[in-house]
């Protein structure tokens, strides 16, 4: 007995899991900070460049702090270019298409989650696989249709395409989310006399609110960043931020600082919201398989 306890005591002194974990934490703390900075470095570097003059931005060797910090680039981007117009278009198109996606996706996901048939699972997987079709595969037919229907370079035209593209992802996320809602509660609502619309709007939606929010946000981000259709079927009236930024790609060496400022302006809103909902995003994006 005493032998037993003393040998246990000795091994505990050498090796407790807690001490080990603590040890690891302190050791590894440094590299994790460094790694995180490396990952974000391109953005931080662009952020820095956005406060430089164009000459300072291309200086070699690069300047880290020793430059004339100024907000001129932001002033110019906001004042002189059509940044605000592009921002407006981005908000209208991404916002409108995300709302439309939810409007169509919620009833579809409701049916799949609460009134499944034998084929629901196959249908879901098939839907997701359509997402793999490169948009370019239908560029021509869409382009021709849109030309004939007058949808080229319109908010509605782009928003419809983005809605179609994001719908499978949205339905998947909503489906995974709705599956977590106990069906009995919806049945209780049905027994209580709620109509289908009331059941979805008053009972299901509030219960699935976090999931709806994260779906909306992800779809909004995807639409905000979508850069195939926005580059190809908008020219002037419906130009979004992606197209606005892409226009900097022509070799205009001396606009990098301004490009950086415009870039920062176009991504900060999405990053901030994304950071706020990262937890829901993971479970949404992995369809509830990872929480």
């Amino acid at each position: 007995m005493s032998l037993h306890s003393s040998s246990f005591g000795r091994s505990a002194a050498h090796w407790t899991p807690n001490a080990h974990a603590q040890f690891l934490r302190h050791r590894v703390d440094d590299p994790s900070v460094g790694a995180a900075f490396i990952v974000a470095f391109p953005l931080l570097w662009a952020l820095l460049a956005s406060f430089k003059t164009e000459l300072e931005a291309v200086a070699f060797p690069p300047r880290f702090v020793g430059f004339s910090w100024s907000l001129d680039n932001y002033r110019q981007v906001l004042g002189e270019s059509d940044y605000l117009g592009a921002l407006r278009n981005s908000i209208i198109i991404a916002g409108g298409s995300s709302l439309l996606t939810l409007l169509l996706g919620v009833p579809a996901a409701w049916a799949m989650a609460f009134a499944p048939t034998r084929h629901t699972r196959a249908l879901l997987l098939w839907m997701l696989s359509t997402k793999m079709l490169p948009a370019v595969g239908v560029l021509i037919p869409i382009f021709l249709f849109y030309r004939d229907w007058g949808l080229l370079d319109t908010h509605l035209g782009v928003a419809l395409l983005l809605t179609a593209g994001n719908l499978p992802i949205a339905i998947w996320m909503l489906y995974a989310n709705f599956k977590e809602v106990p069906g009995e509660i919806l049945e209780a609502a049905r027994m209580d006399g709620a109509s289908l619309t009331q059941e979805i709007l008053i009972v299901l939606a509030p219960m699935a609110a976090p999931g709806l929010a994260s779906t909306f946000f992800l779809i909004f981000t995807l639409a905000w960043n979508e850069s195939f259709w926005t580059l190809n079927i908008t020219t002037t009236d419906a130009t979004t931020l992606t197209a606005f930024i892409a226009a900097f790609s022509s070799p205009q060496g001396l606009f990098w600082a301004k490009l950086s400022a415009a870039s920062m302006l176009s991504i900060v809103p999405v990053i901030v919201i994304g950071w706020l909902c990262q937890r829901q995003l993971v479970s949404g994006l992995t369809f509830g398989a990872v929480k």
Partner: peptide, 20 residues
């Protein structure tokens, strides 16, 4: 007849209260 119009009320095993 749809459930609500049958005039019956049900108590579920999980209670199924509206959590919000």
């Amino acid at each position: 007849t749809p459930p609500a119009a049958r005039g019956l009320a049900m108590v579920f095993q999980s209670y199924a209260l509206y959590p919000h």
